[in-house]
């Protein structure tokens, strides 16, 4: 049994592979050959100073327009992610929790989530989920994240506080059950209580099949979401990788040393 499990693990394909990725925005190269391999069950943290390209990486993985990939590739379960539209990536199981979730007036959270979930299911050839079944599912998830019912009736993120917007991102993450979650600066704009609620929500979604990539400027978040691997990014490259202790090291010595290294 044990041998079998070992064998399975060996043969398991990595979930997300970024290989020598080069990205430009308006003639300026932001990522200069970035590589990253994320396996199922792992939580990776990507740390780095402002302008190191952390958010660019998350946007390119999710398929945001406006970025030009000039080299390298991104594979998701062995498939070329860069060939897919953002909605196809979502249906395959890639989820980006936005640093600044947008407000969509006139589209209720409830309608939006239902339409998005059904679009994903349809893309995967699954049956659509009925309104009652969806309602039940959303209610359960919302309750666990301490999200009041009336938030679901309001326009998406309209009038939400910073903490509510982030919780709404995690609600969606829980609902869509993605294989890879990219969390872009989840801690920005959150006080310590809001951060703890959000982190608890994320931790509840950790599983042996699911991987997470936590992008953050500060070590603080990693006290709540403890990573398996920590990468330091500087000037568009990963300049150092290590265990969770690397984050603590950074907290003490800062990013300056790596800026020189890059």
């Amino acid at each position: 049994m044990r041998a079998l499990r070992m064998m399975l693990r060996k043969n398991q394909m990595s979930l997300l592979e970024v290989k020598d990725l080069k990205v430009r925005v308006e003639e300026r190269e932001i990522l200069h050959g970035l590589s990253l391999t994320v396996n199922p069950g792992q939580v990776h943290a990507i740390m780095g100073p402002n302008g190191s390209g952390k958010s660019t990486l998350s946007h390119v993985i999710a398929g945001k327009p406006g970025y030009e990939v000039t080299g390298g590739q991104i594979l998701f379960k062995g498939e070329d992610l860069l060939e897919m539209a953002p909605n196809e990536r979502a249906a395959k199981g890639v989820f980006l929790a936005f640093q600044y979730p947008v407000e969509i007036p006139g589209v209720t959270t409830w309608n939006f989530l239902h339409a998005a979930l059904n679009a994903q299911r349809k893309a995967r050839g699954e049956d659509e989920i009925s309104s009652p079944a969806f309602l039940k599912k959303v209610r359960e998830v919302a309750k666990s994240l301490n999200i009041p019912q009336d938030m679901l009736k309001r326009g998406v993120n309209v009038g939400f506080s910073g903490g509510e917007k982030k919780r709404n991102e995690i609600l969606q993450m829980a609902l869509f059950e993605p294989a890879v979650c990219i969390l872009d600066e989840m801690d920005s704009g959150l006080d310590i209580d809001a951060l703890r609620i959000a982190a608890d929500g994320v931790n509840a979604l950790r599983s042996p099949e699911r991987a997470m990539v936590v992008i953050t400027h500060y070590q603080r978040l990693l006290n709540y979401i403890v990573p398996d691997v920590v990468h330091v990014m500087s000037k568009g490259r990963v300049v150092k990788s290590g265990g969770k202790e690397l984050a603590l090291e950074l907290e003490e010595s800062g990013y300056a040393q790596f800026e020189d290294a890059a």
Partner: peptide, 11 residues
């Protein structure tokens, strides 16, 4: 807004 919605799976 369109990107946010597409990133959630909507064509």
């Amino acid at each position: 807004l369109l990107f946010y919605m597409r990133a959630r799976g909507l064509p």
